[in-house]
Design a protein around this nucleic acid. Structure first.
Lengths: 189, 189
DNA sequence: GTTATATACGGAGGCGGCCTCCGTTTATCA
DNA sequence: TGATAAACGGAGGCCGCCTCCGTATATAAC
């Protein structure tokens, strides 16, 4: 009972084109104007009807997830690389900085992060990647005796995001410092 | 050039009544349903027109500010008391916990906090109280050599709020832990 | 090529929230 | 008991979300 009938024919070319086009347009729009751009504006900019946008992405979160799927995958990959090549604690620290940087250079902030780290997040695609990454890194550092992990790994991100969400201009600096503070605070003496 | 003509007569009684009524209603509504309740719903619940609500409070933030002015003042008072009676570091820690508790028991979270700690916050009433409180406490602990204060005091709140904003059920626990972690991380060894 | 049909398109329109504007009502004061 | 400033209320404009469905078209079978 997986897929009813499968007399399906090949997905239409125009559909796939539009999908891609929408993703590109959306990415630009999110970067430029933040995660709350009216979806209708994105559709217009892409030259398609609003209905088409919604057919491809049932809601804003879905669109955000897809748009930042790349980034999430890169972050996930970075996590693996760091774990392989660095001391656990430094791996964790470096990854957190990477996280900050990724979302500093995009105007990603709040909206998108809600999709990833928020309460409702259906742990899909990007969300899952991010959560796996931070969890692995944190547990790794914990097992290695570097830190005492007595908060949920995601809470580390949440704290950092708190900074991102509220300070406007150069919040990365503050976020970096917060990373160091938090790691220092979790260190086993 | 302070106040043009002052042939002003006494503010009308019904106006003041409505204002108070609105504040009470709003507080209940915010507590029950979070900071995003439709303002029209509040107006309706208070039995006044939407116009009246907007005349008294030009926007949602203004309303939130007023509603939580009490709490802010209490927090400010607590800060003074703690500074007078506790070791600087413990004063800071205790106040941060108080902060968490205050906003845990109301459904305050996100929306309201944006008004206080967010980028646009016009540093009005409550916002000013809170900022003064945390700044004083932090600097106090810094001068006493307990911590090395190399982030903006408000960033401490922001990190904690980050937790509040994303974890649903018992986020206070996590927030408490984060407070301890952060303070430990800022400790001078 | 033609044709049948599943697939995709577009945008009108319903809904709901924000906020303004202004005609009506009313408390205050002389 | 007016005259008048103050306050009220809610209709309506605007905007964004999202759905629905009539229309257009790429695909595949012939």
């Amino acid at each position: 009972m997986t897929s009813k009938k499968v007399p399906t024919r090949k997905p239409r070319a125009d559909a796939e084109q539009n999908r891609t086009l929408l993703l590109e347009t959306a990415k630009a729009a999110f970067t430029e104007k933040g995660a709350n751009v009216p979806l209708e504006e994105i559709a217009r900019a892409a030259g398609v009807g609003i209905g088409t946008l919604y057919r491809h992405f049932p809601n804003r979160e879905a669109l955000l997830q897809e748009v930042y799927r790349d980034e999430s995958e890169k972050l996930a990959a970075a996590a693996e690389r760091l774990i392989a090549n660095e001391e656990p604690l430094e791996a964790l620290r470096e990854w957190l900085r990477l996280f900050v940087r990724y979302f500093a250079t995009k105007q990603l902030v709040i909206g998108a992060l809600n999709a990833i780290v928020g309460p409702g997040a259906k742990l899909q695609a990007s969300a899952a990647h991010i959560e796996t990454a931070i969890t692995t890194l944190a547990k790794n550092a914990d097992k290695n005796g570097d830190i005492k992990l007595d908060v949920a790994p995601l809470d580390l991100l949440r704290a950092v995001i708190g900074i991102a969400a509220h300070s406007k201009p150069g919040w990365e600096k503050s976020a970096y410092k917060m990373v160091d503070i938090i790691l220092a605070g979790m260190a086993r003496e």
